[in-house]
Structures are given as C-alpha cells and as structure tokens.
C-alpha cells in the first residue's frame, strides 16, 4: 500500500511537472498571449477572483478605517473646529464690511455737512400700533439727545424726529406718521411746502407735500429736501422723491405724493442730529 502511494505520488508529481512544462511552453510559444491553461482556467476563476479581490479591498478598507480611526476622528474634529473658526471670521468680516460701508457713507455725508453733530443709535423696537409709525432707539437724554432732534440714515436721508425722551431711550416718530410735519422745499425748483403724514398715504409708506405755490412746475422724480425753516430740522436733508400728484377730498387742496428716500421699515442703525448750525 505504501509502495502504491509512493508510486502514485511519483506519477502525480510527474504529471504535474508535465502540465507545468506544457503550460510554460504554451505561454512561451504564444508570444506573450495567455496560454492554453490560462484560457481554460480563466472562465472558472475570474468571478471568484473578482469576488475575492473585492472582499479583500473591503477588508483592507475596514482594516485601514479601524487602524486610522483615531487619527481620522482627530482630523475630523480639527476640520470642524477650523470650519467653525472660518464661519465666525466670515460673519465678523460681513459685519465689519457692512459697518465699513455705513461709516464710509456717513463720512461722505459728514464731510459735506460739517455743521452737524451726530449721535449713532440703534432701533430697539417698533410700535405695535397699526395707526402710527414710530420706533424706540437705544439712546436717550444721557447721550445728549433732546426732544424734536431729527433722525437720519447714514446717507443723510431724513427718517423722523424724537418725540419722547427718557434717560436711556427715545421714541422716534417717522416722517410718514400722520402727526409728522416737516418744512420742505423742492430741490430742483426751490418751491417750498410742508411734507406731512397722511391717513390716506400712511399705509403705502408715503407722505404728502402740501401748500406748494406753483404745483404745475413740479415734476415726478423731483427731490424733496428739508427747508430748514423753523429751526427744527437743518436745511438740505433729503426727505424723498415725488412720485405723483393728487387732490384732497375737498378738491381744493392739490398736493404731491412723496416717497421717502430712507427705507423706513428696514432701518436698524441711524444717527440723531444733536446739534446743527441754523441757517436763516
């Protein structure tokens, strides 16, 4: 039995060597192309090899993931922290950029109006009433703000005036409120009038310019500025532009409709004119 096994073993070994030599010869003679054995074995082994390669790849990936988990977690935390830093920097940059634009605009306005003394303020809250237009600002008499001081935007557009003062806050009534009255003139023609809030125009956010002597000279698009008469407002502050003409209910009082240049509903940072040179 032992001899038989050893003989069989020898036969098998010889057969294996013969197959190997045949395979080698077929490869050598085929000039680089796949040999006969490979052609025979390929259809059987290819799917298995593909599957194994894929499995090995997955295992390698898992292994690599496990091996580098701590490292990746650390890198992830570091990147998250960096993103948060960059987001914060971006927010700060945006705020600074907006503030810069406001201050540049103000600087231009202040250079043109050196006679004005300005106090920067922020809007705290708006009135809850649907029948008036007013808001509360962040500074009061302790910052030198007084009753009837005018409020402007950084561009110098008139927003309204202070109508109530406490030590730390003020109530501002806007130019579209029905109690507002401002001495005005049309910049292009020099015609004077009174810009006032109106119940009819209030909901549209516009105001009326009344008591104009030569209404036929007024054109749509003309600029309305403060006249400075009365000494409450400095002269030359832009109130708005004329957008139309109308006549009152009596039919005897024609007036121009003025759209404020200041974005009254959306103002957040404003300036109170605490002092100015009165022009007579």
């Amino acid at each position: 039995m032992k001899d038989l096994i050893s003989k069989k073993g020898i036969y098998i070994a010889v057969a294996a060597v013969a197959v190997a030599i045949a395979a080698a010869l077929s490869v050598a003679l085929s000039g680089g192309h796949a040999g006969f054995a490979a052609m025979l074995s390929e259809p059987f082994f290819k799917p298995v090899k593909s599957a194994m390669t894929s499995l090995a790849g997955s295992l390698e990936h898992i292994y690599g993931y496990m091996y580098r988990y701590d490292e990746l977690e650390e890198e992830n935390a570091s990147l998250r922290s960096r993103i948060a830093e960059l987001e914060q920097e971006y927010r700060e940059y945006t705020e600074i950029s907006e503030e810069n634009a406001r201050l540049r605009s103000l600087l231009g306005f202040v250079e043109r109006h050196e006679e004005l003394k300005l106090e920067p303020v922020s809007v705290i809250s708006w009135t809850a009433s649907n029948f008036s237009s007013s808001f509360t600002i962040s500074k009061g008499s302790s910052s030198g703000i007084e009753l009837y001081d005018p409020i402007i935007t950084e561009d110098g557009y008139l927003v309204g005036q202070v109508t109530s003062v406490t030590a730390s806050s003020c109530t501002v009534t806007t130019v579209v409120d029905t109690t507002s009255r401002v001495g005005a003139l049309i910049y292009e023609t020099g015609e004077t009038g009174v810009a006032s809030g109106d119940f009819e125009l209030f909901q549209d956010g516009t105001l009326r310019l009344s008591y104009i002597a030569e209404l036929e000279d007024v054109l749509i698009g003309d600029t309305v500025v403060t006249s400075g008469s009365g000494g409450v407002f400095p002269s030359g502050l832009v109130i708005g532009k004329i957008t139309g003409m109308s006549v009152g209910a009596s039919g005897l009082d024609p007036y121009a409709i003025v759209e404020p240049s200041a974005d009254i509903d959306d103002c957040a940072h404003l300036y109170v004119i605490t002092d100015f040179a009165v022009s007579e």
């Binding site: 109690t179 119940f199 909901q203 209910a249």
Partner: peptide
Amino acid sequence: QVFALAVLRGAPIALLSGI
C-alpha cells in the same frame, strides 16, 4: 382706536376701518 383718531385728529373713519 379708530374712534379716538376720528374724534381727536379728524381722521376719516371709512379709511381706518379697513385697517
């Protein structure tokens, strides 16, 4: 509110009624 504005400031009631 409408009544107070109409009496004290002569506001047109019809106009304010909508609000």
